[in-house]
Design a protein around this nucleic acid. Sequence first.
RNA 1: CGGGGAGUGGCGCAGUCUGGUAGCGCACCCGGCUGGGGGCCGGGCGGUCGCAGGUUCAAAUCCUGUCUCCCCGACCA
Length: 571
Amino acid sequence: MTRLSQLLLPTERQPPADAEAISHKLMVRAGLVRQLGTGLWTWLPAGWRVHQKVVQIIREEIDGVGGQEMLMPVLQPADAWQRTGRYEIDELFKLQDRKGADMVLAMTHEECVTTHVAQVVRSYRDLPFSLYHFQIKERDEPRPRAGVLRTREFIMKDAYTFDRDEAGLQAHYDAYAGAYDRIFDRTGLRWYSVESDVGMMGGSGAHEYMAPCPAGENEVALAPGYAANVEIASAEPQPVRLPAPLAAPESVHTPGATTVEDVARLLDVPAGGLLKAFPVVVDASEDARVAAGGLVLVVVRGDHRVNEIKLANVLGAPWRPAREDEIAARIGPAGFIGPVGHDVPILLDDAVAQDGGYIAGANETDHHLRGVRPGRDFAFEPVDVRTVQAGDTVGGAPITIEPAIEVGNIFQLGTRYSAPLGASYLDVNGKEQPIVMGSYGIGPARIVAAAVEQFADEQGIAGPRALAPWDVEIVALGKPGSDELAAAEGLYRELRSAGLEVLLDDRPLGPGSKFADAELLGCPLRLTVGRRSLQEGRAEAQLRRGLQDVEGGIPLDGAAEAVAELWRTLP
RNA sequence: CGGGGAGUGGCGCAGUCUGGUAGCGCACCCGGCUGGGGGCCGGGCGGUCGCAGGUUCAAAUCCUGUCUCCCCGACCA
């Protein structure tokens, strides 16, 4: 249905009162989506067209690297989830069928696809291959937000690769990375890929594809040739002017000064001249540094923050902040603790200079030590556990940090799922081997929202042509039955038969309303058929991006060729 | 889960403090005018005031409970 008079396109003059994000406001105002409940969204006809455009781009490129499209169910038996340990995840929707059997609503499809592959694959001759589908994911998110950006139910393209070994996985991973590059280029989005945390899923490598925009939930550290999620980013710290260490640490009276800011002000030193002590309790770990588990003192520069994900990766085990009584028993009074004079293992962040004289807690109420030198005054293991800051450098260039939406990820799973679910094969020697897997996700809805965020202007959506609901919107001016309307109808038919996707605004409204709606919806090319140019046998043309008028418009005679020509120049 | 805010026609809001039988703009319907940037005139339709209970002669308004939604944080395999 591409006559506006008959299309369900409920545009709104005002955004929903509770909307904050640009994409939330505009996608609702433009009539693309409607909310049903928290994190639950309906795609209206125009919005669904956009979503499907993204889906088709993805499909073509994944097919291009040998992915085989299929479809797996959302409602699944709980069994496989119990075996992989993911049944315990809070975000997983759990339910029972009428017989009382435990079921789940899938949040991804590793369990399902691996179960099938385990049944089907016998020999190394059956490998490698890759499978994918577009399917709804259900996640009981603690906090859905920003319209379609973070929802409880959404469609994901999730692909899975199955290989004999790490080398095969790497080849698949590289092929998918190439497909992803082409996908995101084709969408017209501004994007980049970053190294990302492999998280509790383990595995050997992961990248996230990020679309920078103000509503993004992730922070990305960027420098020339460098892009990483702040969760795992590393960089050279900004230098701090430090006094030389004293011959021996010297106690100073610092009454009531329990924070870095207090101490820095009191002693008139920069915050970076302090050592910040962060005591944590670690589960038993394979890491030799904390083999026994228990209390560990993490020490970073006073102006830095401990990065909890980097710390977890260093520790190789779950951890929690230590309680005050645990701290008091082994180190000293909370607020005045430091690395000197106790036997708690110390992890010292690399940003701490080892030749400086630092201020550190004295492990005594109302006292700090001055002139502390790492290595001499306390033993430590060097680690990289701080969160990078804007202005730190990578290869000499300062980094910037910007918010971004994660629109896709690729992940080397290894045997995380094949092992517990028994997906194995017999190798050339007749020996049983676990299948090596990768997983690859893309959220089409996030791509749509990111495009709206990145390219919106005062009038509405101005996204890339690849993501427009229609290629061209024709605004027909004039009364019902007028020459203008008849000419617009003719233009509409001609462009359609030339293979263009065309929306015709044939509603009996004033021009202002039609122009406003057209700009809100954001078709990349708008043709206006009105009295002004009709007498010259032309239609006016305006490019949505930048609201640029096309000089002279286009001729009605030969319109299809003219539009096709124009189309090639659009962003 | 912690903190903050909000539920009154399709959308945006006022009314709540100080109880007295629901109002404004837009949208919508009818008629007319208008026809290049959300136009004008006239006439209309539409609301269990989130829900439940309580106080009262009387509740959108006061009290209790509950549900829903939004924002910040925690979380995010």
